[in-house]
Amino acid sequence: MQRVGEIKVKKVKKEYTLMLVPHHGKGTVWGIRLPMRLVQFTAGILGIVVVGVVVTMLSYRHTMNVASADKAELERLRQVNSVQAQQLEKMAGSTAKLQADMNRLNQLDSDLRRLVSSDESSGTSRSGVVRPNISYKGQGGPAGVKPNIDQINEIIAELQKQVPVREQSLLALRNELEEKIARLAATPSIWPANGDVTSRFGWRTSPWGGNSGDWHPGIDIANDYGTPIVATANGVVIYSGWYSGYGNMVEIDHGNGIVTIYGHNEKILVHVGQKVRKGETISYMGSTGLSTGPHVHYEVRVNGTAVNPAKFL
């Protein structure tokens, strides 16, 4: 039986030929046939490898950049931390010094109050508060102990609380000192003039002769005419002028019931109502009134009663 119309199909292989041709056409020409699929597969693998390498390089570069930035930031933070640590330690030292200064003020307050008055109950310092202590290197604390910010803040807060207490205590002490200074300044305590004491306080032989004696309510200090006579304490002049046997007399009120009298002056320099200070010249020595020669008759009276001036000198 005869076959009609038979068609034969031949499969054509796709491939690449790699030829190696010598220079100048001399020598053998080599050829290598590579299937299309092998070339495509190899090209795909190479493409994947290239992409992987590129991605890896980019990732590595990014990682290195981040690491470099992190390193720079870490170094900056270390520097900042170092500076802050130094500042904190310096702050701790300053705070400790401030606390020591406050303690010295407390001690000074106590010492001054003991000088002002022997009665401690009337001048007790209100500054005796127990304050926290801190330890830090270089200021007496154990080596290696670093200042703690909470401790420093606690001390600062405590010192801030102590400021108004210290202020009130020192203001009260100042007022007390001013009052005592004023009392001392108003208390006769110096000689009214230079010279020789010719008569003392109490009974004496009459300077005008005879066997009778008289009561002398002050002391007499003799010197030359014109010798300066000074106020023996701060006060206000309540009399200035002639007064019977005292001659030219000055009387000064020092407050607290204390009055001083200066008699037999040659010349008076002050007037009634004038304020005078201790050591200020108020007159010049003379021999006016009942007097046997140039001298000053000096009296101290307390609540109107003459007392021995020697107790005030």
Rank of each mutant, 00 (worst) to 15 (best):
K311M: 13
V55F: 14
I268C: 02
N133G: 08
G255L: 11
V272A: 13
T95P: 09
R78Q: 15
G209K: 03
K161R: 10
P147C: 05
I134E: 05
Q2N: 10
M36K: 11
Q151N: 11
P207E: 02
I48L: 13
Y60F: 09
G128W: 08
R33Q: 07
K13S: 05
P228L: 02
A69H: 14
N65E: 14
Y60W: 11
V197A: 00
G141K: 04
P188G: 11
G245E: 01
P207M: 04
Y136N: 02
R33K: 14
D224P: 01
G144I: 08
G31V: 05
D196Y: 05
G93A: 12
G209W: 03
W191T: 02
G255D: 05
S125P: 04
S110F: 05
V39P: 00
L105E: 06
I282S: 01
L105G: 05
G52W: 03
I45A: 06
S59E: 07
Y239T: 00
N308I: 09
V130M: 12
N303F: 12
Q168M: 12
A85P: 00
K275L: 07
G93I: 09
M19A: 08
R204K: 08
D253S: 12
Y243V: 02
R114Q: 15
R61T: 11
L46F: 08
V83M: 09
L98C: 12
N265K: 03
Q274M: 13
G286F: 01
Y284W: 05
W203C: 02
T63F: 07
T260L: 06
Y136P: 00
G241I: 04
A185I: 07
V197S: 00
H23W: 10
V236S: 06
I268G: 03
R78F: 10
L88R: 11
N308V: 07
N194K: 15
N303S: 12
Q84S: 10
L170K: 00
V54C: 13
P188S: 13
T95E: 06
N223V: 03
L159R: 06
V116I: 15
V12K: 07
L108M: 14
K26V: 06
G235P: 03
L159G: 05
L313I: 10
A96K: 13
G93V: 07
S125D: 02
V197H: 00
K278G: 08
K71L: 10
P309I: 05
E120G: 09
I221W: 00
A100L: 11
V54K: 08
G226L: 06
N194W: 01
P294F: 01
G235M: 05
L38W: 03
L177K: 08
V145C: 10
L108Q: 15
V145L: 12
N153I: 01
P22L: 04
V270S: 13
M57V: 13
L34I: 15
E176I: 02
K13T: 07
M91S: 15
S199C: 04
L313Y: 09
W242C: 01
L177F: 15
S135M: 14
W208E: 04
E158C: 03
E154F: 06
N148I: 03
E154T: 13
R183K: 14
L313P: 00
E280Y: 04
P132Q: 03
V51L: 15
V270W: 11
D214P: 00
